[in-house]
Computed example of a mutant assay.
Amino acid sequence: MNWNIFKRKPKAERKKKSKTREWVDAIVFAVIAATIIRGLLFSAYAIPSGSMEGTQLVGDYLFVSKISYGPRIANTPLAIPFTEPKVFGIKTYLSFLQLPYWRLPGLGEIKKGDIVVFNTPEEADLEHSTPVDERTSLIKRCQATPGDTLTIVNTQVYINGKAAPNAPHQQTSYLVTTTDATPINPKILTDLNIEKRMQRDTNVYELVIPRENIATLKSYSNIKSIVTIIKKAGEIDSSSLVFPRDLNLKWNEDNYGPLIIPKRGWTISVNDSTMTLYRRAIEVYENNKIDVNGKDYYINGKKADTYTFKMNYYWMMGDNRHDSWDSRFWGYVPEDHIVGKAVMTFFSTDSTKSFFNKIRWHRIFKPID
C-alpha cells in the first residue's frame, strides 16, 4: 500500500534573480521609498541668501518637515525626482499635466514665529508660467496668520495691536561713525559676525550687527556712535517701493500698515481701496479675471460688490530685516505655496573659511527655533 499519496510534493524551485535584476529592484525600491519620504515627510533645503542671517546662516542645510502642516500633493506629478525645476536651462518636469491644489492632514497649523519654507509668490505671474511646486523655494519667519492685522512701527512688528516677539538673533542695520578716517579692522567685523553693507563717508559705515555684539563693538576706542537705521513714517524710497506699491499709502519697510491678512471665508467690499490691497490675491492667486468700468468692478464678467476669499494667507519676513526681500515687498503667501516647517540644521559650511575650517561643527543637527 502506498502511504505517500497525501504527501506534499516539493515546490518547484523559484527562478533565481540575476544580479542585474537584483540591482534594478533595489534601485527602484530606493527611489520609491525616497520619493515617498521626500514628498510626504521630510525634504532637505539649503540656505542660499542672508535674509535669515543671525538665525539661519548661508551654507546651512535644513530638514524641512512637510507633515507639520500637511504634505502638499505635487501639482506636477510627471517630474524627475531629486532635481531642480531646471537643469542647464532644461525643465525637469512636464507641465501639460497639472493637478489641483490638495494637501493631506498635518500635525498642526502654521503659527506666528514658525520658520517656514514656501514657494515664492513672485513667480505666480503669467509671464513665468511656472507650476506652484516648481517655483523657487524661500525661507522666512511667519509674522502674521490669516485674519491678523499687521502693523510695523519703527521696525517693530505689531499683530492685532500687540508687539510681536522678536527673533532671538534678529538683525538689522546700523549707522556706525568712527572717530577718524582709519578703516575699521576687518578682523573685528569677522570676529563679531558683522556685515559691511556700504561705506557712506570716510568715517561712516552702514553695518549689519548682531544685537548681542553691539556692546562689544561700542567698546572699541575708535567707535564714536552706533545708531539704528530706521526709515521714518511716510519716508518713501521710489527705488524700493513696498507692497502694494501705492505711493498714496506712504508705507515703507520700517513703518508699514495696518494691513489685514486675508482668511478663507472672509468677505470684503470691492472698491478702489480694497482692490489696492487685495487685487493680486484675488486675481493671481485665486485665478479670477478682474475688469474695471468706471467705478464698477467685474469679477469673471459679473459686476461684483463683494468678494469672499478661497484660501488662507500668511505674512513672512526675514530675521535680517534690512537684507530680506519678503512680504513687505511682494505681499501675502497663499496657503498652496507652503512647503513645510524648518525643524533642524543637519549640516553647515562656511564658504569664507579655509578647507579645514569650512564645516560649522556647532550647527550640525541643531534644532531650529
Rank of each mutant, 00 (worst) to 15 (best):
I229M: 12
I229G: 00
I229E: 04
I229L: 15
I229P: 03
I230H: 10
I230D: 06
I230A: 06
I230F: 08
I230K: 14
I230Q: 01
K231N: 10
K231S: 11
K232N: 13
K232P: 06
K232F: 00
K232Q: 14
K232V: 10
K232E: 11
K232G: 14
K232W: 07
A233M: 09
A233T: 06
A233K: 15
A233N: 14
G234S: 10
G234C: 07
G234N: 12
E235H: 10
E235P: 09
E235G: 12
E235K: 11
E235L: 13
E235D: 15
I236D: 05
I236Q: 07
D237Q: 03
D237F: 04
D237P: 06
D237W: 02
D237G: 09
S238W: 01
S238R: 01
S238M: 06
S238C: 01
S238Q: 01
S239T: 15
S239Y: 11
S239L: 14
S239K: 14
S239C: 06
S239V: 12
S240N: 14
S240L: 13
S240C: 10
S240I: 11
L241V: 07
L241R: 11
L241C: 02
V242G: 06
V242F: 08
V242T: 14
V242K: 09
F243C: 06
F243Y: 15
F243N: 10
P244T: 09
R245G: 11
R245N: 12
R245L: 05
R245H: 13
R245K: 15
R245V: 05
D246N: 15
D246Y: 08
D246F: 03
D246H: 10
L247V: 08
L247F: 03
L247Y: 08
N248L: 08
N248S: 15
N248P: 05
N248M: 10
N248H: 13
N248V: 08
N248C: 03
N248R: 14
L249S: 09
L249H: 04
L249V: 07
L249K: 13
L249Q: 03
L249A: 08
K250Q: 13
K250A: 12
K250C: 03
K250N: 12
W251N: 00
W251H: 05
E253L: 06
E253C: 00
D254R: 10
D254C: 02
D254H: 15
N255C: 08
N255F: 03
N255V: 05
Y256E: 02
Y256F: 14
Y256W: 13
Y256P: 00
Y256C: 06
G257D: 00
G257A: 00
G257V: 02
G257F: 04
G257L: 00
P258Y: 04
L259G: 01
L259A: 08
L259S: 01
L259Q: 08
I261G: 03
P262C: 14
P262S: 14
K263G: 07
K263Y: 05
K263C: 04
K263F: 05
R264H: 15
R264N: 15
R264L: 00
R264C: 06
R264T: 13
G265P: 09
G265T: 11
G265C: 05
W266Y: 15
T267F: 12
T267M: 10
T267H: 12
T267S: 13
T267Y: 12
I268T: 11
I268A: 05
I268G: 07
I268Y: 10
S269G: 05
S269M: 03
S269Q: 10
S269E: 14
V270A: 04
V270M: 08
V270Y: 01
V270H: 02
V270R: 00
